[in-house]
């Protein structure tokens, strides 16, 4: 069972959109932004509010790569594996990050919930390949060593906050 606060927050989000099917994706976006993931329990609640079945809500939410039903870390690192980044060796960067954090293509989030490492098709920063994005911030021209350095900085930043 989710804490009541989740529903209060969701009500707040729901109030911003018309109670229609087309509001589903924007609402899920906002829920994910609030919690870094989409708590499954909220889908039937959202579905009922906008007048669709929970089956439909799940069907739509599970279609889109960006929506995650698993909690994500505080820092979501999206390593670009677009063509430009790929030909300029983005894979070693990804591998280093996974190695440092003990993650894999299956296990994407660290146990301390600090980091999530995913790949993304393109960040639109192809000129600065290989690139990655930490939350909403793009890091250009990465190398495996820079990635290690970046993790260190993020850890320090977290310790401070």
């Amino acid at each position: 069972m989710l804490d009541q606060s989740f529903y209060t927050k969701t009500d707040e989000i729901l109030s911003k959109y018309p109670a229609q099917e087309r509001s589903l994706i924007p609402i899920i976006h906002e829920v994910q932004e609030a919690y870094n993931y989409v708590p499954l329990e909220l889908l039937p609640y959202i579905a009922k509010h906008i007048g669709i079945t929970e089956t439909k809500a799940y069907s739509v939410a599970s279609f889109y790569e960006r929506f995650s039903f698993e909690p994500k870390g505080k820092y979501i690192i999206r390593v670009c594996d677009g063509t430009a980044c790929h030909v300029r060796n983005s894979l070693p960067v990804l591998e280093r990050l996974r190695e440092e954090l003990g993650l894999s293509s299956q296990k994407k989030t660290t146990d301390d919930m600090l980091f999530t490492v995913e790949t993304v098709s393109c960040l639109g920063a192809c000129s600065l390949a290989p690139a990655l994005m930490v939350n909403d911030h793009v890091h250009p021209a990465m190398t495996p060593d820079k990635a290690t350095e970046m993790l260190k900085t993020l850890r320090e930043e977290d310790a401070k906050s």
Binding site: Q20, E21, R22, S23, L24, I25, P26, I28, H29, I52, S59, V60, F63, Y64, E65, R66, F67, V120, S121
Partner: peptide, 26 residues
């Protein structure tokens, strides 16, 4: 403004409009 949600196929016209309608982008 509608934000995509990570589906390349939504660049296809009918998938894109389906996505705006709140459906699977097929």
């Amino acid at each position: 403004i509608n934000r995509g949600a990570g589906a390349f196929v939504c660049g296809e016209g009918s998938a894109l409009t389906a996505s705006i309608e709140g459906k699977r982008g097929m």
